[in-house]
Each structure stands twice: as C-alpha cells, then as structure tokens.
Amino acid sequence: MSTSGSIDPGAPEVAELATEVEGALLSAENVSKIFGGLVAVNDVTVAIPRKKIVSIIGPNGAGKTTFFNMLTGLYKPSRGKIVLDGADITGHRPDKIMAGGVARTFQNIRLFSTMTAVENVMVGQHARMRAGLIGSILRPPRVGREERGTREKARDMLGFVGLETKTFDELAINLSYGDQRRVEIARALASEPRLLLLDEPTAGMNPQESEVLTTFMKRLRDELDLSILLIEHDMKVVMGVSEHITVLDHGEKIAEGDPATVRANPRVIEAYLGKQG
C-alpha cells in the first residue's frame, strides 16, 4: 500500500494540504477502515473548508460511503483522526456528531417511511430539542412552544427545499422519488448543520432535476453558509458545483484538486476507464 506521500507527485501539494487541514471545518487525517482483513479505506486525508462545496468521487467500491460513515460516526476509523472545528471527534457516537453540526443524507433514501414528511423533518430536529420523558408527559408551556416551533420550522424547511404544501402531511412512502430526496435534505437541514454530507443525491434523477439540485446546493452554501461534502457519480454535477475534488480508488486517495486538475489527471482517467492496453 502506498503512502500519501508517494501519490502526490510534488511536495508543494502536501504542504498546501497541511494548511488546508488547519482552518478546515471538518478534516479527516490519515483515516483507514479495515473490515476483517479487507482494507476499505486506506490512509485518506480530506479537509473540508468552511462555506465550500467539495466532492469525493471514485468508481464503485472505492470506499466513498465507508468514508462517509466514518465522518458521521457510524463506523469508527481503524486508524487516523477526525477533527470537527478543532475538536477531535474520532470515535464519537453518530448522534453526538450530528448534534455537533454534521448532517447527512443516504445513498438509498432512508426516510422513516410511515411518518409524514413533516414528522420526518421534525425528527431531524431531535438534537435541537430539549423535552425529556417527564417534559413530554407533563408538557409544560416550554415544551408546547418547542413542539409548535419544531412543527413550524419543519414546514418552513420543506417549503425551502421546494416541496409542495399539499404533500407536507403525506406519508413519506407515498411521496415521489424526487420529493423523498427533498424531504431527506430538509430533514438534514432541520438540524441546523454546519456541514451537510450528501451521498449521491442525484441518483435516479433526470438531467433537469440534477440541474435544479446543483443550483440548490450553491444556494445552501451562499444563503445558509453551509459546507457541503458530496459523493457523486454524475460528473456533470460534480464538475459544475465542486470547488475541490478528492478521488478515491480501491480505498485510497489517488488525486485531488480543483475540477480542471482532476479531470486532466491520468490516474483518474485510468481509474474510471480501466487500464488501457
């Protein structure tokens, strides 16, 4: 297994990376994940700057989702360290990381299908709510206000992601595919994240819908001051929206840089098209 030093051709890039990690909102430093004997992610370093959209791309099985799951705490990294805004969050529980401001969506939509759209988004605010067991039973004014506020905010959020008002109280399972994607994003946004992780959000969308989503991501960055980390297959989306791209293949980082640099990198082309000749 090669180290990151041998991947990057020049020393300056490494230095640049180090400075990036410094001021980053979230950084993964030399993280690896090993399942049994299988190395799913090997020694990957990625830094996500504030208010930027960055992407991770790579062929199927490159370890992108595994990497995501480490960032959100679903998996504990076998090696390496994850730092959120200066605090080491390696090995923290997913709900803690979520409360710390990292929200996500899933590759295969995971809405609570027997809840309505609004209820789903209300669940997203769980970490921002206070009511406990006793409070929920006695429902003092404070809890009542919180409950109403949560519901209101959920509706606002659904409006913000462009869901039609008449579908707010539909069960999630009865929503169209595109709307389910929207609700999932609204659910993540409702937690007031600083960083939004989107796992293949355009999967199953037609070009127009992808276009709308691309614009929407930029809006999120500009209006809500969000950082976004995107896993994506659709190169048009990735190249159009990302300010920085990291390429994974077989669990290793093989390239990174701005869209133009990555597009021109022979190793990236090779990873996507296979070895020629």
């Binding site: 709900d95 995971r110 299908s113 809840m115 669940v123 769980h126």
Partner: peptide, 19 residues
Amino acid sequence: RAWIAIREDEVAAVSMGIP
C-alpha cells in the same frame, strides 16, 4: 417520534441525532 424512528430504521435514527 424518536421511538418510531428507531423502530423503523436505527441507522437513520442515530444519524438524525437520536441517541
């Protein structure tokens, strides 16, 4: 809501901040 979320999908629930 948290109980129902857990009943339906533990992974999604914990990812949404439910301990």
